[in-house]
């Protein structure tokens, strides 16, 4: 273990991140992914400065064109002179623990733009389409001064509702003819959408998908804050003119949604939701994780497993015992 860094270095780290230094920020994100205690201490110092960025989550099934949309959104928001951060999540292989993080391939034309910071994250076993470090990484980019932070989920189509806990605006991307609608409804991601995108809308089935979405939205009696999710159709990205036009529409909808959150005071609710998730996670890390670690290392876990298999006790009794013993 390295020694705890000196006080001036800690201050310097914070200053550098606040000044937008990519090297320092990316290293901190790396340490957050590795769950180093120093990184947690750094987050304590960073936290007071968070809360300024508009965080936009982008979810949808694989092949829906999320990365291409993110690339186009970067270009669009850079024209508005906003600093943009991107967190792109790709899955970790459950077999090898490795991952290929390839979302940023589509965004490489922005690699040299100092106003854009793209960071790829692997899920490292986290469920819900995100990485465990995503919430903290959002904070880091926020403190760097990124006004817009785009979070791209893995896109397995499975229960990717986690994104709502980390963003103010959620975009759900659907593609015609992929059976997406049904999948999306099943996975419960329809309810989380603030904006729908029908991507590759030049394909067959685009009108049908639009009609189905409209029918579904028409059944909703009342939208929170009066925000009815718009449905934006985006054409073939190889057709430069029309693509740029529909993209402009999407960028405007993102800004409109944020304004609506502010005007209807719903922004506070969304931020509170994020805070609640964070405190839950932090409590789990601070209380549960050390107990589990100790019980595993001491062999107690192994012993409990044996007792459970022999039906000498049950998990509920064990949990109550541990709580009594540890949480006095």
């Amino acid at each position: 273990m390295t020694q705890k860094p000196e006080e001036p270095e800690e201050r310097e780290q914070l200053q550098k991140i606040r000044a937008g230094d990519v090297r320092t920020a990316s290293r901190l994100i790396r340490n957050l992914e590795d769950e180093s205690p120093e990184a947690r201490n750094a987050m304590k110092r960073i936290f007071p400065y968070t809360g300024r960025a508009h965080v936009v989550g982008i979810t949808g099934s694989p092949g829906a064109g999320k990365s291409t949309l993110v690339d186009a959104l970067i270009a669009s928001f850079r024209k508005q002179r906003k600093g943009v951060g991107v967190l792109a999540v790709d899955p970790t292989s459950p077999f090898t623990g490795g991952a290929i993080l390839g979302d940023r391939i589509r965004m490489q034309r922005h690699a040299e733009d100092p106003g854009v910071f793209v960071r790829s994250l692997a899920t490292r076993g986290a469920l819900g389409g995100l990485s465990k470090a995503v919430g903290d990484a959002v904070h880091v980019m926020d403190v760097m001064g990124k006004e817009l932070i785009l979070v791209e989920t893995v896109g397995t189509g499975q229960q990717e509702v986690e994104i709502i806990n980390h963003s103010h605006t959620v975009i759900v991307v659907l593609v015609p003819g992929m059976g997406d609608e049904i999948q999306a409804i099943k996975a419960g991601i329809m309810e989380i959408a603030d904006i729908f995108v029908i991507n590759k809308a030049d394909r067959d089935g685009s009108h049908q998908l639009l009609n189905e979405l409209m029918a579904m939205l028409n059944m909703v009696p009342e939208f929170p804050g009066g925000w009815r999710p718009p449905v934006i159709r985006i054409g073939n990205c190889f057709d430069p003119g029309p693509f740029a036009e529909s993209l402009g529409e999407l960028a405007a909808a993102i800004n409109d949604h944020y304004r609506s959150l502010v005007e209807t005071d719903l922004l506070g609710d969304r931020m509170k939701r994020k805070t609640m998730v964070e405190i839950h996670e932090a409590l789990r890390d601070a209380i549960l994780a050390p107990i589990l670690k100790e019980m595993t290392e001491s062999g107690e876990m192994e012993e409990i497993a044996g007792r459970l298999l022999r039906k000498e006790t049950d998990p509920y009794t064990i949990a109550e015992e541990v709580a009594r013993r540890r949480l006095k």
């Binding site: 090898t96 993080l101 390839g102 940023r104 490489q108």
Partner: peptide, 13 residues
């Protein structure tokens, strides 16, 4: 191959 070796790989095309 790097992924299968357990590394995290950023590929940029």
């Amino acid at each position: 191959c790097f992924r299968d070796a357990g590394f995290e790989v950023i590929y940029t095309g």
